[in-house]
Design a protein around this nucleic acid. Structure first.
Lengths: 153, 153
DNA sequence: TTTAGTGCAAAGGCTTTGCAGATGT
DNA sequence: ACATCTGCAAAGCCTTTGCACTAAA
């Protein structure tokens, strides 16, 4: 079955917040008000966001938060399993929420740059087989299909 | 059918050279001895190579060739269809010969970083279907499977 | 000759880090 | 109090560019 995911499901903020606290506690780290602001801004961004974009969106209400802090916390979120880092083509590194957000692949429009999330179980299964046929233990994967989107075709 | 490509087929140097000359001629560009040296070094490198690695390998015999020239010519080769740029994970940009080298996907070992090239027709077909089901015209794609290779499992 | 290519060094763009001061615990 | 986190600025790292010079055509 092919599933097309056009936009994010609502992210469970309290669960994400809890996961982050847990990770922070386990690793002898501390909480901070900035971290919560960044987490909240990231989860409500609702798209594949760059560090700059997130920084800018936070700057509006919290101009005291620095770029490095945003960057460091984004990395922390990746480590704690809340966020995923995606690098597509020559574009900047982007981040997306991982929690309550199933694995998916990306359709990338070469004209307008639109990112659409898609998923196909059959492909997932074949990918695992392909890896195993080469004595490889697959753990995760990344599929990007480049072309022209509905609007640009 | 699953095809596992462990290493490069022999690259046809004269054909690549010809293609490059053609591209150069069409675009009102000129030839240069450096370009031929870089092309030759690139084609005989026989692996996914970074600009630095290529630069270093050329430096041995031709220390007068600059980094920028290697970089510029690598880009030129991409534009002329001889090379492909690949960006995997957080690693540096790598380049690989495209000519006489079929489309393939990559298995990336998370432990040792080994890159293995693989291909599966069925996946290719499903990918096109997946894209089309979303009104998308697929043109090319990139699949990377991360995990543990034979040696590291 | 004319103009693209080269080599050097410097500038860009993004990511990461050092450090002094602020802040959780 | 003590170690982490923050904010700033500076450093890194890789890629790209400006410019005077070299060399194809």
């Amino acid at each position: 079955m092919i599933t097309i995911i056009m936009s994010y499901e609502k992210i469970d903020m309290s669960k994400a917040s809890e996961m982050l606290r847990e990770y922070v506690a386990k690793n002898g780290m501390r909480n901070s008000s900035q971290r919560e602001i960044i987490l909240s801004a990231f989860l409500s961004a609702g798209k594949h966001i760059t560090v700059d974009e997130l920084f800018d969106s936070i700057k509006e209400k919290n101009p005291e938060i620095g770029y490095a802090t945003v960057h460091r916390n984004l990395r922390l979120m990746c480590n704690s399993g809340i966020a995923d880092e995606i690098k597509i083509g020559k574009g900047k590194t982007r981040f997306e929420p991982k929690l309550d957000h199933k694995h998916h692949d990306h359709l990338v429009c070469l004209k307008c740059g639109q990112l659409t999330e898609v998923n196909d179980e059959k492909i997932e299964i074949l990918q695992d087989k392909l890896a195993q046929a080469n004595g490889f233990i697959p753990m995760r994967h990344k599929l990007e299909i480049y072309g022209l989107c509905k609007k640009c075709r």
